[in-house]
Amino acid sequence: MTRLTPTFDRLKSDGKAGFVAYVMAGDPDADTTLAMMTGLAEAGADVIELGVPFTDPMADGPPIQRAALRALDGGMTLRGTLDLVRRFRETDTGTPVVLMGYANPFYAYGFGAFAEAASQAGADGVICVDLPPEEDTELREGLKAQGLSLIRLATPTTDDARLPRVVEDTSGFVYYVSTTGVTGSGVGETAVVSGAVDRVRKAANLPVAVGFGVKTPERAAEIARVADAVVVGSAIVDALNASGVDGALKLAKTLADAAHSAR
C-alpha cells in the first residue's frame, strides 16, 4: 500500500477535502523544486504531484508548457526527477508523491525499469497523460509489481460505457479532469463537476481529485465541497515563475486552507 490510501483515509475521517499541489521538476532548477516540495508539504499539501518535463506536453496549457521548457533548458531529466523524489524523502517520509508526465520519457527509460526506480526513489504513484487504458499494460504491470498506484484520468468525455474500464486498474485515487481542455484552461461548473465526481466515485469506489483549471482559493473551496481533493497546478507554477518560492508557497497556503476548511 502506498502513502495515498492512508492520506485519503485520514482526510475522510477528518471530514476534509484534500489539497493536491503540482510542481514541475527542475523549474527552473532542482534545488528550487526541492524547496517547493518541502514547502508545499508544510503549507498543507496532502499530495504532491511532481511534473516530469517533456518537450511535447499535448494536454497542457501555456503555464505548464513553459515550465517544462524551463526545466529542460535547465537540464532536468526523468533520472533527475527521480533523484528529486529521493532527496525529498530524506526529510519527508509521509507526504505522498505522484509523478505526472507523458509516455515517451517513461518508455525510453523502460516502463518496468522506471516503475522500479520510482519505487526505490520513494514515489507513490504515476499519472501518464497519453497512456489510455488501451495502451498502458506495461506501465500498469510494472507499477503493480512495485506496489505503486497507477492513477488514471477520467474526463467529461468519458461516458458510462467507458468509465468502468478507466477506473478498473486505478488505485490511490482517480483524477477527474473537470473540463474538456488543457491544464489551466478553466474549471467546469461546480454543479456539473459535482455530478461527475459522484459518477466516478461510484464506479471506482476510490477518492476523486478534481483538477485542470482551479486557480483561486474561492474555486478551490467550491470544488472541495464536492470532491475528495482539489488539484492546483498552473496557478502555482505561474506564481513560482512570477514571484519565486515564497510567493508560490503563500498562494499554496491559501489554497490548502481553502480546501481544508471548505466543508
Binding site: A103, V129, D130, P132, E135, L153, P156, R162, V177
Partner: peptide, 8 residues
C-alpha cells in the same frame, strides 16, 4: 496514445 479526453 492520446489523452483520455480524446479517446471517445
Amino acid at each position: 496514445f492520446v489523452a483520455e479526453t480524446l479517446m471517445p
